[in-house]
């Protein structure tokens, strides 16, 4: 077999292998997305059954929409808080569980367990726990702290939805980090110890670079995921108080499904897509700078 026939066959196999995923993407992702882009150029009254081409009007409205600006600010806070808290907590838990200690399996399971609980039950419990006289403030009271009315203050509501979401899902990232940590060769640490590096230096100089591919993966998943958190906000705060937790996806839902402005909802969808795509592209571009194996 010559190199070139191998090459050509390789091409064919490559196309065959990606074909199912590719066709699926075309049919179930790109086609619907194109439809959404088309809706955004129209005024669509679902109830009345009217569908009318209005060109860029929805986009003009987007630029002038003050509520949208509030929503973008809320989204930025929510996403930033969620990503930072999720990744640092996941890493902390993974490091703790990576110690030579009896019973880590048990703790690992406990930290992972919220991932398995239904969202409905999860948010309901937290709603009760965050009541002014709920368990959270009861616990704070033990330490002499007079806890706030969590879901009714603008800042505390935002903090609450972030924390509730992080605790629900941090287990997934924790498991990924744990797997990565266990892949770091122990001799590297020994060598560093001999060179007199303290624990913090070892963590920063050895652990972080070696698990950087996992950090990339988890941060992409988490950022993208943070912009898609919907149900928790719908149950816990309904975007309030005021509009303090009305993140973009919730605003989109309100416009399209609650207010029946489908065309405008589609326009916000396009904006959301552009934001997510830009963020992901940015991370992907920067990966060569700090991620091992990718340069």
């Amino acid at each position: 077999m010559t190199f070139w026939t191998y090459r050509r066959r390789d091409n064919l196999v490559g196309y065959l292998f990606v074909a199912p995923a590719l066709l699926g993407s075309l049919a179930f992702v790109l086609f619907p997305l194109a439809m959404v882009a088309w809706y955004s150029l129209n005024e669509w009254n679902v109830l009345g059954g009217t569908f009318e081409f209005i060109g860029g009007e929805n986009y003009a409205r987007l630029l002038a929409d003050e509520k949208l600006r509030d929503s973008l600010v809320a989204t930025a806070w929510f996403a930033a808080g969620l990503v930072v808290l999720n990744l640092s907590l996941a890493l902390l838990l993974a490091v703790l569980l990576n110690q030579k200690l009896r019973g880590t399996t048990l703790f690992r399971t406990l930290f992972f367990s919220p991932v398995l609980v239904s969202l409905v039950a999860w948010t309901l419990v937290w709603q009760l726990m965050l009541q002014p006289e709920g368990s959270v403030n009861g616990l704070l009271g033990v330490f002499g702290i007079d806890g706030p009315n969590w879901l009714r203050g603008e800042t505390t509501a935002m903090v609450s939805v972030v924390v509730v979401q992080v605790i629900k899902n941090v287990g997934l990232n924790m498991v990924l980090f744990l797997a990565a940590l266990q892949g770091v060769p122990a001799p590297l640490y020994e060598a560093a110890k001999i060179d007199g590096a303290g624990p913090w230096t070892r963590f920063r100089r050895i652990t972080i670079p070696l698990i950087s591919p996992t950090i990339l993966l988890t941060s992409i998943i988490t950022i993208v995921g943070s912009l898609q958190v919907f149900a928790q906000i719908a149950v816990l705060t309904q975007g309030g108080p005021g509009t303090s937790t009305t993140v973009l996806i919730y605003y989109l839902y309100q416009q399209a499904f609650q207010f029946h402005h489908f065309g405008y909802g589609a326009t916000i969808s396009v904006l959301l897509f552009v934001i997510v795509a830009a963020l992901t592209l940015l991370q992907w571009r920067m990966r060569r700078k700090w991620v091992l194996h990718e340069s």
Binding site: P32, L33, Q228, F230, Y253, L272, F273, V276
Partner: peptide, 21 residues
Amino acid sequence: VVVLTGLLIPSEVTIVPLFQM
């Protein structure tokens, strides 16, 4: 990149066209 697009879209966005389909 084409395939990766799917990662970026919340299901609320495409549910109406998919339902039509």
